[in-house]
Design a protein around this nucleic acid. Structure first.
Length: 888
DNA sequence: CCTCTCACG
DNA sequence: ACGTACGTGAGAGGC
């Protein structure tokens, strides 16, 4: 079946310009709008597989619309030069991609689109129109869908006549009347003053059209009547202006719109010229003309590097060269390093590079090489040494002596950049090109280790790349004052994390299974009741099916919608609970089902058959704020808030008889950090006197005494304190407290009246971020906020809240990381057997032998509280028991 | 592979 | 008017 996509080029590039962060190529040419446009275009092609496609552009400054109304589009801001410069780039790129483009003198893109779609309608062809302009909705018809671009550029919402009726209760033609009444400030279309969308819709539902409204003013009264009578002409003219002209003389026919897929020959170089590397990769295109094939090419590429693929014969040679080797790469497979197989390792000195297959590394002949790997006094740099350490460990090969981890350094230099792999880093620092892992191994189900020659060269080139990257990063870390953070905190921490993960935490499998049986019984009971009440069986886990039952069968009111249908999240269900008894049961089902699938079943799968423990993997390079994250399994989100779930913590037990679980968590660390960095006298005072901070906040904000603070006031104050840490907005607070926005705004204002130092901090940090383009934590950890100066309100607001939150959350992360390093040292120096097992953002969990319990109960909070000296005391609360549940 | 939902700090 | 709270990971359904 043919499918034609019509794209409103002007509108889409305009939106892309404002939606995308500024992006320039190395020549200094801004390319963000072209980039945004292209990503949208590629997505459309992938998802909708058009057989025909055009991009329409406006042409000529004066269009026929100006003939009757000179002010048309008057007052509109001039197109910024950064955008107009991108039009030729886009047109050129479209040509190279093989996408037809139309422009017709003195007509606008929407008229061209309207005219083509009229002809297509008449011929019964399937059409999709892509634009961000709601006016386009007037073109929707049986065969024509309008794809409105929502936020950003790649999110679209599809409208046919059906959807327009659902949303506005109007026909597509009535969209014109809507605009006739409302006007449109951006096109300088007047409409009727005082009539907005709400009023316009009411009028149209009553009278059907602009003409109908004007004829029917007799039935109205008051101000509205006067206005409509006075501006009847404006409304008529506005309607005319809003009407898309569908009779443009088209010289092009159907055959001029044929799209047979991207022109792969010209697309590659064109994308490369714009430096759209991610798009090149996504399309698996090469940026240059096809490379020479076969051995000749391989040799040409690798001539620069002296690479030895090590077999038994070369082993002595390599061992003799070890003193000069400072970089390595451990190639392993899979995501979970605890289950990874080691494939081989690359080793690099300045002038020689080696690849050692894993089988050789394991052989008796390689003992000296293994000693070198495990020697903490031979410094080694690499990419993700933490993973390497774990993968080798489970193969019985100790690893030590991590000096510089380039993955970790890259994270510090830009924690928001999605995990950059070695080939990205090599490219970033203009080092010799390194093939991507995907191109060498394939990905997903197609992952396959290539033959030795190819594999060995690739891995050796990786260790070679590490050498070059280390040099460049060292300079950058120096320039950004992060060398201390890197060498004294993150690098030592990575070894500590690996130790914690190897140690693992014991899980009582039998108890966990028992808990699973209890949940199972509860689930069965709930499911039966729910089916009974609903009178039908369905998949309770499917939001789609559940929505159908709740909102169609039971006719409950729709509170919130998602992109794809009805929302059925807990917030919605809470609102629906008063209407129908089944809703409570569904909420209970959700709770228990989550515990069962994620925690009971999920955790059981993660228990190692070898150790009887779960070995999580902490990722040190994911969270933009500097926090850790935890995977396989995630041990940072084990339930605690509800008792049913909290019980799960009982299955986390010490791994040796007679030992205890000891845990300590920071009390209000984020607010204490805020007190320090904002230097707010009142807040500092509260912590110096170790007051209950939420009660204290309630007292100050509501102006009452401690005794007068009721639970509701404290709850509100607590929410405000959370909000402050997140970078507050009245909307966010109103959602959280379920109160009107105005009231939330009042709370916030009252808070800032009292905590003026906090207000000053919030203002200043945003100014600082706008000036520098980044914010920092107390330990100089940095986060760039490119959107802080965006003209798009949402992007900018988001960046502003991030500017407020990141120094707080990030400094708290710095502090607990420091505590971990100090604690590790303290355990070592005192020769203690106690082991650090888990970190949960503000909590550290240990297993402790009986004879060390009393000591650890003192030492742990002492070290945590002393991790960093602030202007307010840090406080750590310690607890212990026979399992994690007891340690509360 | 994406979306929704929900667990944690 | 805009439409959000900050930071994560995992399981299930459905295309």
């Amino acid at each position: 079946m043919d499918k034609l996509i019509l794209i409103d080029g002007n509108n889409v590039i305009y939106r892309a310009f404002f939606a995308m962060p500024p992006l320039t190529n190395t020549a200094g040419q801004q390319t963000n709008a072209v980039y945004g446009f292209t990503t949208m275009l590629l997505r459309l092609i992938e998802e909708h597989k058009p057989t025909h496609m055009i991009v329409a552009f406006d042409a000529g400054k004066i269009t026929f619309r100006h003939e009757g109304y000179q002010e048309y589009k008057g007052g509109r801001q001039k197109t910024p030069p950064e955008l107009s410069e991108q039009f030729p780039l886009l047109k050129d790129l479209l040509r190279n991609l093989g996408v037809p483009q139309f422009e017709i003198e003195s007509y606008e893109a929407d008229d061209i689109i309207g005219s083509i779609s009229r002809k297509a309608d008449e011929a019964g062809r399937e059409v999709m129109i892509v634009s961000g302009d709601k006016d386009m909705l007037q073109l929707a018809s049986e065969h024509t869908t309008v794809a409105l671009i929502r936020k950003g550029v790649t999110e679209i919402e599809l409208y046919g006549p059906e959807q327009i009726r659902e949303k506005y209760d109007l026909t597509p033609e009535q969209i014109i009347d809507l605009k006739g009444l409302m006007g449109d400030a951006s096109d300088n279309i007047p409409g009727v003053p005082g009539v907005g969308e709400k009023t316009a819709l009411k009028l149209l539902h009553q009278f059907g059209s602009v003409e109908g409204v004007i004829a029917g003013t007799g039935e109205l009264k008051g101000k509205m009547k006067e206005k409509l009578e006075a501006h009847a002409d404006d409304a008529i003219m506005s309607k005319k202006l809003a009407t898309i002209y569908r009779e443009v003389p088209l010289e092009h026919g159907w055959e001029d719109m044929v799209f047979t897929g991207l022109n792969r020959e010209t697309a590659g170089p064109a994308l490369a010229k714009l430096e759209f590397k991610s798009l090149l990769e996504r399309l698996s295109l090469s940026g240059s003309a096809p490379a020479p094939e076969g051995e000749e090419a391989a040799e040409a590429q690798e001539a620069e590097l002296e690479i030895t693929i090590v077999g038994e014969d070369e082993l002595d040679d390599l061992i003799a060269a070890l003193p000069g080797i400072s970089a390595l790469h451990v190639e392993s497979n899979g995501d979970n390093p605890h289950r990874a197989e080691v494939i081989g390792i690359g080793l690099s000195s300045l002038d020689r590079h080696y690849y050692v297959p894993f089988s050789l590394l394991q052989s008796p002949a390689a003992a000296k090489l293994r000693d070198w790997l495990g020697d903490e006094h031979t410094p080694k740099s690499g990419y993700d040494l933490h993973r390497a350490d774990l993968a080798l460990h489970w193969q019985g090969i100790p690893f030590a002596g991590a000096a510089k981890d380039v993955q970790l350094a890259a994270y510090l230099l830009d924690p928001t950049e999605a995990n950059q792999d070695l080939s990205d880093l090599a490219a970033k620092y203009s080092l010799p090109r390194l093939a991507t892992d995907e191109s060498v191994f394939g990905k997903g189900a197609k992952y396959k280790v290539p033959e030795l020659e190819v594999l060995g060269h690739h891995v050796a080139r990786k260790s070679a790349a590490v050498l070059g990257i280390v040099q460049k990063q060292d300079k950058e870390l120096d320039e950004t004052d992060m060398n201390g953070l890197f060498d004294d905190l993150e690098m030592p921490l990575s070894r500590i994390l690996a130790d914690m993960e190897k140690q693992g935490i014991a899980v009582n499998k039998e108890d966990l299974k028992e808990l699973g049986k209890e949940f199972e019984a509860q689930i069965a009971k709930l499911v039966a009741e729910i089916y009974e009440i609903c009178g039908t069986e369905f998949n309770l886990n499917s939001p789609k099916q559940l929505g159908e039952i709740l909102f169609v069968k039971l006719g409950l009111p729709v509170v919130k919608k998602t992109k794809t249908g009805y929302s059925t999240d807990a917030e919605v269900l809470e609102k629906l609970a008063p209407y129908h008894d089944v809703v409570r049961l569904i909420l209970q089902y959700r709770t228990i089902a989550k515990l069962q699938s994620t925690y009971v079943e999920g955790l059981l799968k993660e228990i190692s058959p070898d150790t009887g423990k779960v070995h999580t993997f902490y990722r040190q390079t994911i969270a933009a704020t500097g926090r850790l994250s935890s995977q396989f399994p995630n041990l940072q989100n084990i339930p605690i808030r509800l008792e049913e779930g909290r019980k799960l913590r009982k299955v986390f037990v010490p791994s040796e008889p007679g030992w205890s679980i000891l845990a300590a968590d920071y009390s209000q660390i984020e607010l204490r950090v805020l007190a320090h960095i904002s230097d707010d006298e009142l807040l500092k005072d509260a912590f110096l006197h170790d007051m209950d901070i939420h009660t204290k906040t309630a007292m100050d904000v509501f102006g009452v005494t401690a005794e007068q603070v009721d639970s509701n006031m404290r709850r509100s104050a607590k929410a405000v304190n959370f909000g402050i840490v997140y970078g507050i907005s009245d909307y966010g607070l109103s959602q959280n407290l379920n109160i009107p926005r105005k009231e939330a705004a009042r709370f916030i204002e009252q808070y800032f009246e009292v905590f003026q130092g906090v207000r000053r901090y919030m203002d200043e940090i945003v100014v600082e971020a706008k000036k520098n383009g980044y914010v920092t934590t107390l330990l100089e950890r940095r986060r760039y906020l490119p959107e802080i100066n965006a003209s798009n309100f949402n992007l900018r607001s988001f960046a502003e809240r991030t500017a407020m939150n990141t120094p707080i959350q990030g400094t708290a992360a710095d502090i607990i990381k420091l505590a971990m390093v100090h604690m590790d040292k303290a355990l070592f120096e005192r020769g203690l057997k106690s082991r650090m097992l888990l970190q949960v953002h503000d909590e550290l969990v240990f297993e402790v032998p009986a004879e060390e319990l009393e000591l650890m109960k003192v030492l742990l909070p002492e070290v945590m509280e002393g991790a960093l000296k602030l202007s307010v005391p840090l406080k750590a609360e310690v607890s212990y028991g026979s399992n994690w549940y007891e340690a509360k």
